[in-house]
Write a protein that binds this DNA or RNA. Structure first.
Lengths: 130, 130
DNA sequence: GAACCCTATCAACGTCATTGTCAAGATGCT
DNA sequence: AGCATCTTGACAATGACGTTGATAGGGTTC
């Protein structure tokens, strides 16, 4: 289930230690499994312009660690905060315009709210699990 | 249809010229008509914590000019940008936290996009008009 | 007393988010 | 070659969301 060849051993230890978080590594099935989301969902995120995974010369998506991080942000904003994709996109744009790490501030807030009161009363679709 | 008494003549010209934008003036039916929204919608906005109109001693909502301005912001973000109420709430919170006029920047952007490309692909409910 | 406000509830209607499938074709690995 | 996975595109099911609308019972304003 892995298309093992995509796991490039040279990725590790080539720079002495660290792994380049921008390096495109994960095929969509792997990425989807890591972030616990359906591959279809990741394709939608890309259609909406929320993520932009690189492609191989043969047009296959490859996700980097930063891509995964971004996906997890999307999941947090949509699932935990009930924000829809248009709102997420706006927040991303805003963060880029301002050059500030807005999102982290939001995350800290929601971490501090351990009293677990609903963020905006209503929630976004978290059904559709079958 | 007006509950005319709520229109306080003393509001005008009491300070020499300007009208206090914070002064609670409009009853919900009037406010709703001004911003072209159903009263039910305004009550929902209040339930969601997006607006906070003052109340008379007898518990009747009174909206100020600033309240109306805020409502128009909500309408812009939801109708033109497709952001849901949770997203709007987050943006408001963020603006308050940062002390910056984020929203105006967004509005300028959308004004500059005269090419009329859809903000996030999909749109929020703009149906339900009957 | 007529017209409006309050809260609360129920509902219709269309859109949104997510998951899922199916098709037909290209790619990667063994 | 053959199998698994990828690609795009379409279609659908499910539940939640946004908005408008109606109704009921009770208070407020004039």
């Amino acid at each position: 289930m892995t298309l093992i060849g995509f796991y490039d051993p040279f990725m590790y230890g080539s720079g002495g230690k660290g792994v380049d978080p921008e390096r495109p590594v994960y095929v969509i099935s792997v990425a989807a499994e890591i972030v616990a989301v359906h591959p279809r969902t990741l394709r939608i995120y890309e259609e909406e312009g929320l993520i932009c995974p690189r492609r191989t010369s043969t047009n296959i998506r490859l996700f980097s660690e930063n891509d995964l991080r971004r996906i997890l942000w999307i999941r947090h904003l949509t699932q935990d905060r009930g924000i829809n994709l248009a709102g997420v996109k706006t927040l991303f744009e805003l963060e880029e315009r301002l050059g500030t790490r807005i999102l982290e501030r939001l995350y800290e807030e929601s971490r501090n709210d351990e009293t677990e009161k609903r963020p905006a009363g209503r929630r976004v679709a978290e059904g559709a699990r079958r």
